[in-house]
Computed example of a mutant assay.
Amino acid sequence: MLKGWRRAEKGRASLRKPRLKKVYVRVKSTLRKVDGENVRITVRPYEYLTLSWSHTWFSPRVKGLELGEPVIKEDKVHLPFRYKLPWSTPLDYLAIDSNLYTLDAYDGEKFVTFSLRELYSLKFGMELKRGRIKSFASKHGRKGELLSRKYSHRERNRVRDHVHKFVNELLEMYTVTTIAVEKLNKQDMFQEADDRLSKKISRTVWRSIHRALKYKAPLYGSLVKEVNPHLTSKSCPRCGRISRKVGLFVVRGVVSPWIDNSTHP
């Protein structure tokens, strides 16, 4: 803020005085010392503030994790924890193709499909319920607004719970693995899709799944990489050749990408 004000004095920025909207202090790693489940923060020379999370509800969840830079506010303290990334890139890999109802993956030996239909059905059902709530809210003012907020919060919690359980099962199957996922952009998809397909795309939670994979993978010794989705669905996972005709076929209940024999050996 002071640097910005100095620029303002030189005529390179607005002349309005800087104003702090939220009062907080971010503690640098050099000013805190961690001892077990306690952290000692240096306030002044020989003056310290000690915090402990040994008897908190989240203590078992952060066991073995590294404490980041605490953030102290007027009425609460935020303790961020971070995972330690593996020192080397795992040799085993899993390539994931994100679709509407499934995640189709290839691990170098076989194709594996993870179903997302239960999650899609949850989003679809909540969407219908939200429509009825919006109709009710338009006629009942404040009461309808509170009800709408309540169900929106409930939907987020249910989706988040389902995503975390799904990601945990996936990572338990593929430990110490480099996982490649597509860096998808829904806004670009909406421009190329019709109204019906756009509604289906809006019910997907690819980004939430990828985000959960990213920060949970180090717990299992794995690593997540985002790749450009261009031509990933048309490329053969074995040899990398790109085909013009791509579809799906089912073998023993597993959905796998197929490439027309006339264009692929």
Rank of each mutant, 00 (worst) to 15 (best):
R82L: 10
G131H: 01
D161Y: 14
V62S: 04
I72T: 02
T56D: 09
L116F: 11
Y83P: 04
L79W: 15
K165V: 08
E145F: 00
Y101Q: 05
H162C: 00
R142N: 07
T56H: 05
S54K: 15
E118N: 13
H55R: 15
T113I: 00
E66F: 09
Y174R: 06
T175G: 07
N157T: 06
S121V: 06
W57M: 11
H162P: 01
L85H: 04
I96C: 02
R156F: 12
G64E: 03
D75Q: 09
E169S: 12
I96A: 02
P45Y: 14
M126N: 07
H78Q: 09
L94S: 05
H55D: 15
S115C: 07
F111C: 07
L171E: 00
V77G: 09
E118G: 14
R117Y: 11
R142L: 01
L94N: 04
G68T: 02
K150Q: 08
S88Y: 12
G64N: 04
W57Q: 11
E69P: 01
Y101D: 08
H78K: 06
L94C: 07
R82F: 13
T50H: 10
T89S: 06
R149M: 05
P90D: 07
L51E: 13
Y106S: 10
R149E: 08
T102V: 05
S135Q: 12
D161L: 04
S148F: 03
P80L: 02
S52E: 08
L170N: 04
V167H: 03
L128W: 00
S54G: 05
R142K: 14
T113D: 08
A137Y: 04
L171M: 02
Y101K: 10
L51C: 15
G125P: 01
T178W: 02
Y93Q: 11
D161K: 12
S54E: 11
D107E: 05
R142V: 04
L85A: 03
L103N: 08
K63A: 14
I72H: 09
F111Q: 05
P70V: 01
E127R: 14
S148R: 11
T178K: 12
S135H: 10
D75R: 11
S135E: 12
E47I: 14
L65N: 05
K123T: 13
S121P: 01
V71A: 10
F111V: 04
S115H: 08
G108T: 07
M173T: 14
R82S: 14
L85T: 00
G125N: 12
S138V: 00
V77W: 05
K134S: 13
R149A: 05
E145R: 10
E127F: 10
S135F: 04
I96L: 08
